[in-house]
Design a binder for these strands. Sequence first.
DNA 1: CCGTCATCGTACGTACACGAACGATATGGG
DNA 2: CCCATATCGTTCGTGTACGTACGATGACGG
Lengths: 155, 155
Amino acid sequence: MRNVAKKQQEPKAAAGPSRPYRIEEQIGYLLRRAHQRASAIFQISIGDPNITPTQYSSMVKLNEYRELSQNLLGRLVGMDKATMQGVVRRLKERGLVDSRPDPGDARRTLLSLTTEGQRIVNKLLVNGPAVTRETLKPLNGAEQRQLLELLSRII
Amino acid sequence: MRNVAKKQQEPKAAAGPSRPYRIEEQIGYLLRRAHQRASAIFQISIGDPNITPTQYSSMVKLNEYRELSQNLLGRLVGMDKATMQGVVRRLKERGLVDSRPDPGDARRTLLSLTTEGQRIVNKLLVNGPAVTRETLKPLNGAEQRQLLELLSRII
DNA sequence: CCGTCATCGTACGTACACGAACGATATGGG
DNA sequence: CCCATATCGTTCGTGTACGTACGATGACGG
């Protein structure tokens, strides 16, 4: 126990650099923080304080495919079926989404946008690009493309 | 209104490419999905199913600074004070964190790890690097460093 | 020394996220 | 045709995340 000062800073003499463990350099931490900021920018830029990012994603998908089962919509936007259930329930409560039983499969419910839902999503789609633009503002064009590409590769 | 077919696919003739709007290419969507995957990998790799990513971050910080106010800890790990309150409550309920009133400021509570909290966090720190390694596995070394750097720049 | 303003922790409400369990339905193999 | 297995949607429990409001305390200026 004589040489207490030996490792007082970093183990620089070990095999390899063996960098200190910093939470700020861990991918999970950075993703959590970046996602927080992106969500905040979404809320102030999308133009409707009552629409959340997941609700927006769901509505955009329902706008592409006219009708989808809840389960398939969840897979398309990357949400658990239990999570999807809450998102759909809130959208239905606000009259933006409607549902009917699937005539060919009694387990399924087919979801679609109401006229009001159509109107809202078309309005929000105008602001959609600004959200990504604002979130990526600290990066130049090449860096922005690279970040999007690297992220899609770790999903 | 005669020429209905004019814009039927994409406005290719407009100024600039004006790419179609795809939710899968928006930064917020990609961050949500990537964060989901990172959290899932954390849970199966960290070695303790009862510790969540935010609890881990908080404990790592409390391991660096021996004692911190709840508010300062929240700023260090990027959590709202209301969110921090829940995280701390659960850690205290499990006996991993202790608190005492700040002798110099009656508004503050000083937080610290218990002996058990120390033991747990030192065990988890062994697995910490593996979580980042597994999450970034689809990328090579240079790409991994670049992703971490780009993410920290948009926070 | 007293009032104004900021900060700290707490409480409540809303929303996402997911595992687990469940009932109803669908499907494929024997 | 019937049963084992799978899928679909729902419900419950836990945890993160944040806005808002609140009471207590602290800091600063007049």
